[in-house]
Design a protein around this nucleic acid. Structure first.
Length: 279
DNA sequence: ATCCAGGTCTGTT
DNA sequence: AACAGACATGGA
């Protein structure tokens, strides 16, 4: 199906701004995405975006996945009012949207992300999916969906190490076990206040504040979180503390004061506009 | 070869 | 509460 949309949708920027890991770039305006057990192709020609799915599937799934109910023009305007210096980042990449991705996949993905570069994260995530995810077939051939918790619960720490996840192997095992027995309830997190949801995620060995906030932002669409990675630390200290070193707590407080309920998307505009090699 | 990567854990001060 | 190393692996 096709859709007409404004400049707040750019498929290249949406996919490549650092939130998605299971996609294939076919060309600059044509992406293949695996999510929610399906494979979708999206091609964009200016304001016209074509999705290889039915209207029903679009309304049931992809509309929410691409966050199309949210008015990003208003959101951008509100952000600039909060912090005028954000305008240059927004103008650079106005087509970013925060995807609503699967919680379990985001949890595993961001555990794997620590101390890895973007291309390496993608390799690890795809390796996990190709080894343990259900194999399906569609018009373009076979593909692997991201494995469910039950599927990964059968994987040993040694088997994860064989996939070259390194020291993250025991972290994965701990996370999967806690999801399986409900100590981390991914459905309940959906309805918990952000701080309680974060506390639940932090029970997992290998999930710290930054990874927890990435899960909350990219799976649960919690716009009030601000994943504080090395890039954000540089940006915040530069913008607000004249480059001086301050504690994480102080940086997070400043981000919260400045961006409030729009912290998550603010973070993403800054991230994509700041990270080297992400043009 | 050495350093670093969308961090976190485990000690020490 | 703040700081240092360790941690696996691969790419520059």
């Amino acid at each position: 199906m096709k859709l007409l949309i404004n400049e707040t949708f750019n498929i290249q920027d949406i996919m490549e701004c650092g939130q998605a890991f299971r996609y294939v770039k076919l060309d600059q305006a044509n992406y293949e995405i695996i999510a929610f057990g399906k494979r979708l192709r999206v091609s964009q020609d200016g304001n016209e975006v074509a999705f290889t799915c039915t209207e029903v599937a679009f309304e049931n799934l992809w509309e929410a996945y691409f966050d199309l109910k949210v008015d990003y023009q208003k959101l951008q305007k509100d952000l600039v009012a909060m912090e005028p210096r954000l305008e240059k980042y927004i103008d650079k990449k106005p087509g970013i949207r925060i995807l609503k991705q699967e919680p379990f996949e985001m949890m595993i993905t961001f555990i794997l992300s620590q101390n890895k570069s973007m291309p390496q994260i993608m390799k690890l995530v795809n390796r996990v999916a190709e080894n343990y995810g259900t194999k399906l077939e569609d018009q373009w051939g076979t593909y692997h969906v991201f494995p469910r918790p039950e599927q990964l619960s059968l994987v040993s720490e040694e088997a994860f190490r064989a996939l070259k996840v390194g020291f993250r192997a025991p972290y994965l095992v701990d996370a999967i076990s806690k999801v399986m027995d409900g100590r981390v309830d991914l459905e309940q997190i959906e309805v918990l206040p952000t701080d309680e949801a974060r506390t639940m995620l932090l029970q997992v060995k290998g999930i710290g504040r930054k990874v927890a906030d990435c899960i909350l932002l990219f799976a649960y669409h919690r716009m009030d979180v601000f994943p504080l990675d090395v890039w954000m630390k540089r940006a915040i200290t530069s913008l607000y503390f004249a480059g001086d070193k301050v504690s994480d707590q102080v940086m997070l407080k400043k981000a919260e004061e400045t961006f409030g309920q729009l912290s998550g998307i603010a973070q993403q505009y800054i991230f994509y506009g700041t990270v080297e090699g992400m043009e």
